[in-house]
Structure formats: C-alpha cells, structure tokens
Nucleic acid binder design. Sequence first.
RNA 1: GGAGGGUUGGCUGAGCGGUUGAAAGCACCGGUCUUGAAAACCGGCAGGGGUUCACGCCCCUCCAGGGUUCGAAUCCCUGACCCUCCGCCA
Length: 428
Amino acid sequence: MLDPRLFRTDLENTAAQLMRRNFSLDTAAIARLEEERKGVQVTTQELQAKRNQSAKVIGQAKRNGEDVAPLLAAVESLGDELKAAEARLGEIQTELNAILLGVPNLLHESVPDGASEDDNVEVRRWGTPREFAFEPKDHVDLGEGLGLLDFDTASKIAGARFSLMTGPLARMHRALIQFMLDTHTSEHGYSEVYAPYLVNAESLYGTGQLPKFAADLFRVEHDGRDMYLIPTAEVPVTNIARDTIVEADQLPLKFTAHTPCFRSEAGSHGKDTRGMIRQHQFEKVEMVQLVRPEESFAALESLTGNAETILQRLGLPYRVVTLCAGDTGFSSTKTYDIEVWLPGQGKYREISSCSNFGDFQARRLQARWRNPETKKPELLHTLNGSGVAVGRALVAVMENYQQADGSVQVPEALRPYMGGIESIQAKG
RNA sequence: GGAGGGUUGGCUGAGCGGUUGAAAGCACCGGUCUUGAAAACCGGCAGGGGUUCACGCCCCUCCAGGGUUCGAAUCCCUGACCCUCCGCCA
C-alpha cells in the first residue's frame, strides 16, 4: 500500500508515476473524497470533543450532588449527530482505503520503461550453453523415457497441471531443496524457517495478494472461515513481521524457507501446457529479507546474487534481467528475474524472481523497526526472491545434464545429497 | 469434541462506569554523582490521525466488531486468538 499522504499532498505526481505501469489513478475521485473527508473529519472530531467535555462536566456535577437534568437535556441531540458524522466518515475512509488497496507500488527510477516482458533489460549472463552432439530432449521426454516422470498418473490422481515423480528423479528434486537450504543457511546468512502452508486472509492482504489477486489462490473453507494455500513462502515468512516492531540491532532479518506453492492461475493462460514448468503445485526455496529502508536496494543486489550462486554451483547457464515498468509485479519497486537456459526449449526461462517492495508491504503489514536516530517505530523494507524454484531447477538440470542415451548426469553439488550417485539411468 | 481461565503501552503487570491514555516494575533515553564504569538519585519515554508557519490545541486507539450509557479498559452480545484440564489423534 502506498502512503496515504501521497493522496493528500502529491496526488498528481503520484498519478504520473503510476502511468509508467499503465495504471491510471482516478485523481478527480480521490481529490473529491479527500476534500469531503477533511470536512467530515473535522466535524466529527468537534462533536467528539463536545461529547467528552459534556461527559466530564456531568460527572463533575454529579459528584458534587448537583442536579444534572438540564445538562443531560443539553446534550440530547449530540449522540445522533455524532453517530451520523462517524458513519459518514467511516464510509469515506472505507472508500479511500479500497482505492488505495488497488494501487500498485511506485517504481524505482532505475526500472526501465516498457509494456511487456519483451521490454525487459538484460543485465548480465553467466555460463555458456552447452553444445550438444545430439538433438537435446526436453525434460518431459527425458523423464518419461527414464520412467521416472508420469503426468498421466498425476492427472488421474489430481488433474491437469500436476506431476508425479518417482525413484532417483524424486530424490534429485529433494536433493535440490536440501542443497539450496544448506547453501543459504550456511553461506548466505539466512535462518531456516518452517511455516504454515495454509494462511488466513490477513496475511495475504499484508503481502499484497489480496484483494486484487484472489483468483490466483486456492481457497479452503474451514470452520466456516476461508483459508488459503500459500502461493509462495513469501506470504507466511514475510508475515512473521506483521504487527511487530523490530529492534535496530536485529536487522537485517534474513529468512529462507522451503515450501510447496499452490497457484490456481497456472494453466488458465494456455502457456507451458507441456511438462512441469507451470503447475498448480510446485516447490520453492524462498529468501526473505527485512531491512532498514536505506539498505533495501543494496539488499536486492545481494539477494539476487544469493540466488545466482545456486545456479552457478549447479553449473546452469543463466541471465539476469531487470523487469520493465509494465512487467514489474504489483507490490514491487524493482524486480530482477533470473532466467535459466533450457536446451529443450532453446531459450532462457524464469527460475527466480527477486524483488524489493520498499515499504509497500510493510505498510500493510505494520512491520516496523525502531529507528535509533528518531527513536520512533518506522516502516521496514521487505524483499524476497526465489532461491530458486525447485521444479524448474530440476527441469534445468535434466535438460542441461542429459546424455545421448537419455540418462542424466548428477551435478557435483548434488551428489552428496544423492548417496554419491553420478547419473540417473533408465529404470529397470 | 467437552469444561474453565485469559487478551491492557517495547516487555511484565495494576486498573470502583466519571481528569485512567492508563499505577507500578523492567527495558530504553537524558542528567547528577564518578578518573571511567557500575550502583544510587532526578527527569523523560505508547501508537495513529486532524489542525497550525510554529508553540500548541484537538480526536482516535486498553484483541476485533456490535450494544447499553450524558460518559466504557471497566457492563452486555458476537467473533478471533492464547492458556489449563479432559477426550481424540500423526
């Protein structure tokens, strides 16, 4: 959520900045509501002050044993007037708040202009895509050829957009998770978190998935209340800081968590219908940082670097792109996507997304820190990034490490997690 | 699932329906003292909002939402969460 003060003091400039995202702010409506809010709020507060005064006087009189009947008569109509004013003020505030909740974050000045992913700007590349002496297969052919990946059975069990892995392939999937968690905790200074996979609506408002993106979520009813399967670990982990004030010496807070992620939107676009690139359920290792405001852009660089380390250790070629204005997520001020090379598709595909949210999430979350200079609680800055998407990492390993006979070599970094085996061979 | 108890400021914890936005303690900040530190003593210290050039003044907030009342942290209703005991359970 943006600072509501922007609506009061810097409306036109805010609207202009939002146009970079192609988001048009109804400044006329907001100005009108703000104007009315001001008047009604002043009236309301005057009535409240009057009520407090009268109550005090009456209390005093009563204690002195005086007759309070005339005093009571004098305030008779006050209650109704006040109630009406409070009700109207509430309506206006609800309306303004609804608008505010739908407004995306302001972009950092370094974010390039552009409308779609075609306008994203490449920042750097790492590694060189391998030359194949044979026609490289994609992960579906490889996995099914090995007899370890089975989409038909998955769809029997659950439906489209789910996958079933068995044997050493399932183990490699698990190995990737362990490898990533170990790297982030022992080398990058993150503390490991195990968090709920079902969350309440408040948490989703906090990180910005609600109210705007309800359709992307799996909703579960429990005891007559709605709960949601997390679409990313960002939700439970960032919400650790909701409604808290962190002492300055505790910062930065760096968390990493492995969780499954559930997304109902996957599949509705007809994209990536083949394979496990886009699934309703997938695993992710996530990094979350809560930092002092002045440090958040430096933190974005290091967090992105932490994700890159994973790909480097796995020997997977990738590139980093800065998302353009039109492609940057709702809550983000700036996002880097890391795209891994997939020989089966002959292109780079997103495997991690690292964002700085500034104070946008923190304001919704009321996640604050005590600034020693001002002695006041101030909003934190929040960041997160995938470190990295596990299913896609598995796809990348399979495709990049495939052999002519359809087997898959195990990257060095994963061997300790796989009982030392060097390759995954066809079953039987 | 059953029966009780609870939710107050950064933390602990008082709080008769009427100067209680809230005692006290801790923590924190400043000062006195000290060569320095500790201790002791003195003082300060919730958050959000409105208005003001500013000093200030005012409003809201004691889990949330309703209600009673001239007046609610305090009474009533509903809900959430936490704790204890019993039952069940991986």
